[in-house]
Amino acid sequence: MADRTMTALDAVKGGLWTELPVLRLLLGMCPTLAVTTAVKPALTMGLSVLFVLFCSNIVVSFMRKLLKPHLRILMFTLTIATFVTIADLFLRAFVPRMSEMLGPYVPLIIVNCIIIARAEACASKNGIFVSAVDAISMGIGFTVVLCILAAVREMLAVGTVWDIPVLWKGFVPWAAMRMPVGAFITLGLMIGLVNFMTKTKAN
């Protein structure tokens, strides 16, 4: 596998806009739809993914020249599972309330396509620095999208953002926004907006 297929600048641009994991590549849909009922769990999930992505990208990049093609996926999974278990233990020890709210979605980071995709597409082909930058930008892109989606849903479902009331007194909460239908509609609108912006720019 040839090294240096991308630069750090490509990684930053990719993670934050051109390859935005949720809105452009449609990766990581499971946590995106499931944990975005409020901003706090969404931010916790985003930071957990960022941590796992960062650690796994560095480890995979470090051992990229030693990887046998047929053991590649096995090594990725082993690496990711280790860091996910550490993140899960950390949350249960220090942020138990968030750990309860996120439930099985933290252990499910192991099968998050963003992390496996970045290990395969970036970390196994690039140096440690580029892989680390790629992980940080992808992680930030994922976290920001999750937080925006969660903020919209929390505001319309409960009238708060980060548990702070932001809407007028007497606002009737939209119960549907707390349910999967709310996540799908908001996500669809966000994807539409990103596509519209890209199209407008291209024209």
């Binding site: 051992m63 030693l66 046998k68 053991l71 090594m75 082993l78 690496t79 280790t82």
Partner: peptide, 12 residues
């Protein structure tokens, strides 16, 4: 074939 996997499993 498997030394990297074994070492990694031990370290992890």
């Amino acid at each position: 074939q498997s030394w990297l996997l074994l070492v990694s499993a031990f370290v992890f």
